[in-house]
Nucleic acid binder design. Structure first.
Lengths: 235, 235
DNA sequence: CTCATAGTTTTTGTATACAATCTCGCATAC
DNA sequence: GTATGCGAGATTGTATACAAAAACTATGAG
């Protein structure tokens, strides 16, 4: 039923990793929308694991701010309030600035090339694959953070970027990526030139543009059936 | 066996919260030392809960970087490498600066008073209660972050400060608090005067002093028996 | 028609059972 | 004496069982 994936990545559980990855991707790509109910049985059934595993995964996603949990009422995709959203953006700005400060003084040609390659990927995906484009836009920032060489910074950036996907799903037009690829290119160019201040300015401008897109749209339907969606992410 | 604590705090589980709090405090106060084995059965027995609960708690502590987990080998109190330690300190510096930037422009007299009260607590504890002094020193920074009004910042500061306790346990003299109370007072004074730059400078100096205390001492014994320690934290 | 209510079904919280894996001691060979 | 296997016991990974709580449905009163 499920491929015997061996992902010797990091955490405790072993089988939970694939469920975690799938669910997370579904959220990031905005296939699952804020407010959607995450029933343990449903997820377990679709991914071919028991509730024990699902529960671990949901707790993890909750810790990252991607799902809300209420005692005795279960889990839903998080619906950050406007104030939470602002907090996330401010923290993100602070963290990504530090990433650029580090990168400016230690980025290698190899790093630049990887970044450039990623932007090409983004460009390609932007033309036909909506969901992947959203994910890739975020992953550019995650790649930056990971290249910075500070694992703590990398983890936190990963988290805030993911939460931003959620925020955009809530407050912006549906399926909008949170990044114009052009601005990513500007950051790379500034880094290549060794101009840390320009890179930071570009990032500031970039994130400010994203923040301003808060326009409050639909709060989603009552009880969507997530079964068919999960199937696409249970690979 | 266990007090029926009702802690309607935040997360998913209900009973797990008290185990989480107890275990966390034991780590912060350096009663449990880096490397100590955290056997699920032992913890469950001491806290009067099943392994299911313990497992949730350990996963949560792992996500926060306080415990290491290896597949099929279980959990131990985290032993951050020197490089991880540096990453934590750098992230902490970055986050706490932002906290002060925010505080400088919105701190109230009431906030100042709470901070001042906390430092008094620290002073009192420093004279007789070693473990509590360590915890209170960290909690000063957590209080600062929570007063900043940014929940994301607050959560991350909480995390890095906790990890710093661990780092100090590993690399500094045993039972040393990571803060001289005097420096906390300087930060309060700067905030009271509305001098944000002075506050940030004081914080920079403060954290730099902490960072420099990395001196690498003992890596702890092979297999300590944590049972008696847990009893003190299973209240 | 709206509201309240009782009973049924669904879903969550927790404990426990069982298999897979690891640890450690002990015997044996070299 | 050191190293190599082997086996008993301990520990973890996962599924399942069961009780408590919530959600839903349908019925009846006003």
């Amino acid at each position: 039923m499920n491929a015997p994936v061996r992902n010797p990545k990091s955490a405790a559980g072993t089988r939970s990793d694939s469920v975690y990855a799938g669910l997370r991707r579904a959220i990031i790509e905005q296939a699952l929308m804020p407010g959607d109910k995450l029933t343990e049985d449903v997820i377990g059934e679709r991914f071919g694991v028991s509730r024990t595993i699902v529960r671990t995964v949901l707790a993890r996603l909750h810790a990252e701010g991607l799902v809300d949990m209420q005692p005795n009422k279960g889990a839903t995709i998080a619906q950050p309030s406007l104030s939470e959203a602002q907090d996330v953006f401010e923290a993100r700005m602070c963290l990504e600035r530090q990433v650029l400060v580090r990168l400016a003084e230690r980025v290698t040609d190899d790093d630049i090339e990887r970044l450039q390659k990623h932007v090409h990927l983004e460009t390609k995906a932007s033309e036909h694959d909506g969901p992947a484009a959203i994910r890739l836009a975020g992953e550019f920032h995650i790649l930056l953070a990971s290249l910075s060489g500070n694992s703590v910074l990398a983890r936190y950036v990963d988290e805030v970027v993911s939460r931003c996907s959620l925020i955009l799903a809530l407050y912006s037009r549906p399926h909008s990526s949170d990044c114009s690829i052009n601005e990513h290119q500007q950051i790379i160019d500034a880094l290549r030139a060794g101009n840390s201040q320009a890179a930071i300015d570009a990032m500031d401008h970039h994130l400010k543009a994203v923040t301003d897109r808060a326009l409050l749209s639909s709060t989603s339907d009552k009880h969507r059936d997530i079964r068919s969606i999960l199937d696409r992410y249970a690979s």
